[in-house]
Amino acid sequence: MRDFYGVTLDSPLMLGTAQYPSPAVMEAAFRASGASVATVSLRRETGGGQAFWQMIKGLGVHVLPNTAGCYSAREAITTARMAREVFETNWIKLEVIGHADTLQPDPFGTLEAAEILTAEGFEVFPYMTEDQVLAQRLVDAGCRVLMPWGSPIGSGLGLNNRYGLKTLRAAFPDIPMVVDAGLGLPSHAADAMEMGFDAVLLNTAVAQAGDPAAMAEAFGLAARAGVLAAKADPMAPRDMAVPSTPVIGKAWL
């Protein structure tokens, strides 16, 4: 199994901590999902940060700080440095956003920041499109995990470019990959895992569900089902029907 900078995860589910109706619901969702990683951010302290941090620590999961909302490499680098000190981890989910409507990552800013951060000892999880050339440049920059998007953040559209994701997966067999963003249903998570990805990262689909804890559990099960399926070597699809019941021995009626 591929690991994440030396860390083997118990569950292929990474869950965001934002947008829940309450902290208690978020906690329930984490427990129900079995998620192994929680994504967090840094924002201006207005009073709630300390209690939030205590709650996250109590979850007993790995913490993946993000640079969400950064629109330049410079901003993302500074945020990453601050996050490393507060969260005491070299892990950073590098987000350099290129467009406000699609929240599409800026490949140039992402690469620039990844080069600097890996040189500073960060273990970078770059949020990226499924572009294979960008993937190679990020690997060349020292990234040992890639995080291609499924579809735009918060859209719930699932795997928008299955061909692109499939070829990306095949092109980098040794690089752990997380499908991050755009997943809306547990079937999307199972789909990504069946395609051979190593984890999925989602937030809105669980946090904004009518019953976040139940949806979290569904995502946890789906991701696990996808892993089992991928390991079980799925059959190849074919265009024509092939009877599964033996033809020989059928009665002459």
């Binding site: 951010s41 201006r44 941090w53």
Partner: peptide, 26 residues
């Protein structure tokens, strides 16, 4: 500005200080 450098870092009028804390994120 690393925590270890805060003691030695003097302030001047008009400086811009950002103080960030752990927060929810996706």
């Amino acid at each position: 500005l690393p925590a270890a450098a805060r003691d030695g870092q003097t302030l001047k009028d008009g400086d811009r200080l950002e103080v960030l804390a752990p927060m929810q994120g996706g």
